[in-house]
């Protein structure tokens, strides 16, 4: 049945990319977060007077070894290793939320859900295909954004300070573990919501006002750990990954065709 699942994943992705309006909503968040915001920050750091009192105060709070590097370099490092990773919890979820929210209810609204349910896929496999499509989309957007950011911020930093950017080790668990785990939790919850929603708008509202704030609030708590230790981050990511897996497993058994068709 892998062929069937991959057909559904491809079809769902194509549906998004073929719709300019949807594509714009997906692209705009990463562009703002990975290009516009860092650029503003870097320019501010570059042109801000180095003897500003607040910044001196901030420097004093930093561990001893960083106090010796230049203020601007420190600011770039701070931005790159401590603020930008947080964006990579937001980007994949935002990118996938539109797709995940319309996953079931969107099919129901265009009367294609019944056709899919007449396929030899079980409802579980169908649910899995829908989650997988949104998850792959979120990761795709996330990694492309990461590369764009690496190039953009790296180039700007080089031009402005002459320093070559070295991504910290904590990026590794963020991109490979934390971001996928948080994304999977959010997508599973949104797809579940989509299966029960009466229309796409309801599903999107649930996603934007209920699921996203809660998931981001929870995940945001762990980002502070990046300052402490990358291994700690790995541990917590694994915990979140397990949580995502259990959530997905429990959701898979929750639905039958009749429920999906009626949205109840």
């Amino acid at each position: 049945m892998n062929r069937a699942i991959s057909a559904i994943v491809k079809k769902d992705m194509r549906e998004i990319t073929a719709n300019r309006q949807l594509l714009f909503t997906i692209v705009i968040v990463p562009v703002v977060l990975t290009l516009v915001v860092p650029s503003v920050f870097l320019l501010t750091a570059h042109f801000a007077p180095e003897d500003a009192n607040d910044l001196q105060e901030l420097m004093k709070l930093m561990p001893g070894n960083v106090q010796n590097i230049g203020m601007e370099e420190l600011m770039v490092g701070l931005l790159f290793d401590n603020i930008l990773p947080l964006f990579f919890l937001i980007i994949p979820i935002m990118a996938a939320s539109v797709m995940a929210a319309s996953s079931f209810v969107g099919e129901r609204e265009q009367s294609t859900l019944e056709t899919l349910l007449y396929s030899p896929l079980t409802v579980k496999q169908l649910f899995y295909a829908k989650v997988l499509a949104a998850f792959l989309m979120s990761m795709l957007v996330s990694w492309i954004s990461f590369l764009v950011m690496l190039l953009g911020v790296g180039l700007e930093s080089y031009v402005l300070t002459g320093a070559v950017l070295h991504p910290g080790i904590s990026w590794l668990p963020v991109m490979l573990l934390l971001s996928p785990a948080v994304s999977l939790i959010a997508i599973t919850l949104i797809v579940r919501g989509s299966a029960k929603a009466q229309n796409v708008m309801e599903a999107q509202q649930k996603a934007a006002f209920l699921v996203l704030p809660v998931v981001l609030l929870l995940a945001g708590q762990f980002v502070g750990l990046m300052l402490i230790n990358a291994w700690m981050l790995v541990g917590l990511s694994v915990v979140l990954g397990l949580l995502a897996w259990f959530l997905l497993r429990s959701s898979l058994g929750k639905f039958c065709g009749e429920m999906l068709l009626s949205g109840r």
Binding site: N19, Q110, T112, E114, T115
Partner: peptide
Amino acid sequence: SGVMTEHAQMYNHL
């Protein structure tokens, strides 16, 4: 089984 009903439609963008 093959099923054709009024509510089993296909994708407009394809």
